[in-house]
Design a protein around this nucleic acid. Structure first.
Lengths: 224, 224
DNA sequence: CACCGTACGCGTACACTGTACGCGTACGGC
DNA sequence: GCCGTACGCGTACAGTGTACGCGTACGGTG
């Protein structure tokens, strides 16, 4: 069997860098990034811990590979005539992917070298903006701004200790409000009560800010 | 000596929760959050590792305290008539603080319980927005949006492997461009070259997006 | 057939982590 | 004199990432 055929067999049955990274993503989804250790991951794969190092140079590199898998899950930028619709879909898809892998956002900071999926994604976004008439500089601004918003939203959402509007209401009543003396925090009290009464759900936040951003960027097309 | 006097002595000479947390912040600034271990921190304070646990229930709690120290460094929201100026200064101050403590942004995700400084800060921002005429819901939207932007910007900035425009130019020429085949990444090539030629510095990004956001929020005052 | 290089899997070991437990000491109050 | 309480810390344990090196299987070459 040639080396190449062996690779193919490996890709059917044995381990591979990709398979290791995919299993790592699944494990992190299930147990959080703190629960991801080389020994546990190896256990899930039915292998010894050191076996993983045949496919991944270090845990850092594994984390890089995991992030790139996450980027692969983002929907390709649609080829729509309207740049706002295209970027809107792209941002929503990114947001959903980051919500699905809540550990990912906390890793983005430390991973400084973008993987191939990340690069392809950036290329597609830049292409969309440039074709819509944004200058190089404006496209960079827009890209940075939209990424900041999407990542920052994911960061805030990941920090919330609840998932639904009901849990929010419950936590607000039972945990937050008792911590907030009304004379020291009048406005937070007002907000908390009003939002609970209105059935506020932070899941709605994303589209509000996104649409505001897209509308604000529109007049900057065709300007320097 | 009464227990209270003892506290005072402790606050002059010995350890305290605050002193431990401050030292932890300094250590994290110097060595990054990965370099922060209880033993190292104790060493810096001339104490044994377990001594720290007299002042901090766990490392998690220490991290919470560190985050709150970071929030304390943010300038109080100025009491200006113009809400945009006030929020602008506040956001800039936050951005600077997060840039000074690059480890902080990666911790925000996992810390779900806001500390007192965080709460005071939120109260002040909410007060500013409400007094400017934003409804409760709009103030919440605006706060969420601005926080998303500030945190997301910090996250992106923390991920950059360079600090100055010169380093960016150098890295782009030596590292990025060689990785980007022009036929696969035409737009990224175009951008990279144009930005280097123009002396692009991502430090400018923050104010661009911030002003765009503030302007876009302005018309939402006095609306539901 | 024998031989060898190479790929793969992994057992062991080391330095390091957070922290549970418990002991020793100093001191204020009874 | 005695005790409770606060404080400092040494030891120990389970768990981490990973360097090192051994065993084994197998394709290619003599």
């Amino acid at each position: 069997m040639s080396a190449k055929e062996q690779r193919e067999v490996a890709s059917e049955a044995g381990l591979s860098r990709q398979r290791v990274a995919v299993a790592a993503v699944r494990l992190a989804d299930r147990e959080g990034v703190d629960g991801l250790s080389m020994r546990r991951l190896a256990g899930e794969l039915g292998a010894g811990a050191m076996t993983l190092y045949r496919y991944v140079a270090s845990k850092e590199e594994l984390l890089d590979a995991m992030i790139d898998i996450v980027f692969e899950e983002i929907e390709p930028v649609p080829d729509e005539a309207d740049w706002q619709s295209a970027m809107r879909r792209e941002a929503l898809s990114t947001q959903q992917v980051l919500a699905r892998h809540r550990w990912a956002i906390s890793l983005m900071e430390s991973r400084t070298t973008p993987g191939p999926a990340n690069l392809r994604h950036r290329e597609a976004v830049t292409a969309c903006l440039r074709r819509a008439g944004f200058s190089v500089l404006m496209a960079t601004h827009a890209n940075w701004l939209l990424n900041s918003y999407v990542y920052g939203h994911a960061l805030q959402e990941a920090g919330l200790p609840f998932d639904t509007a009901d849990e929010l209401a419950e936590m607000t009543e039972d945990v937050y409000l008792p911590q907030l003396p009304p004379d020291e925090f009048p406005y937070l009290n007002e907000s908390a009560k009003a939002l609970v009464a209105a059935g506020y759900d932070p899941a709605q936040e994303f589209e509000f800010g996104l649409d505001l951003l897209l509308a604000a960027l529109e007049p900057l097309r065709d300007s320097a």
